[in-house]
């Protein structure tokens, strides 16, 4: 009679698509923290390559991270440029706004990525609040 597998071992086995989900969440975070642009391109490539064939868990994480990355680009780059263009650099109030805006938005986006990565590591789906829907 075959020996039944250890239940804790089953739980530790990665789910289908979990590796890809972790990779997507990691690239989202690397894009924000270490290699902006390059990591996004890698995420885009991963999305293009696996979006049709990946297991549902991976597909969900790929879609969410790509959408959140696009929103991050809008929120951090375009919005910041707009503030600077409209107000110029030579006012204290502009600096107060820009630094507070950049810090809070960037930290929030990173925190969402941490939650997403923790979910991916646990083999669970994660929907980014607000920034999880792809741009129109």
């Amino acid at each position: 009679m075959p020996v039944s597998p250890d239940p804790s071992a089953i739980e530790e086995m990665p789910l289908p698509g979990q590796g890809l989900a972790v990779a997507a969440e990691s690239l989202y975070l690397i894009n924000l923290l270490l290699l902006p642009g390059l990591a996004f391109l890698a995420l885009l490539w991963l999305y293009q390559r696996h979006r049709a064939t990946a297991p549902p868990l991976a597909r969900q994480h790929l879609r969410q991270t790509l959408s959140a990355s696009l929103w991050a680009g809008v929120l951090l780059i375009i919005a910041n440029l707009l503030i600077l263009i409209l107000g110029g650099y030579d006012k204290a109030s502009i600096w107060v706004m820009v630094i507070l805006y950049f810090t809070t938005v960037h930290a929030t986006l990173v925190m969402l990525g941490i939650l997403g990565l923790a979910r991916a590591l646990a083999g669970q789906p994660y929907a980014y609040p607000l920034v999880g829907k792809l741009l129109p």
Binding site: I114, L121, A122
Partner: peptide, 14 residues
């Protein structure tokens, strides 16, 4: 601290 946050959420998720 980044690892600590992932640690906390990962443990609670699992």
């Amino acid at each position: 601290f980044f690892a600590l946050t992932i640690f906390c959420f990962n443990m609670v998720n699992r």
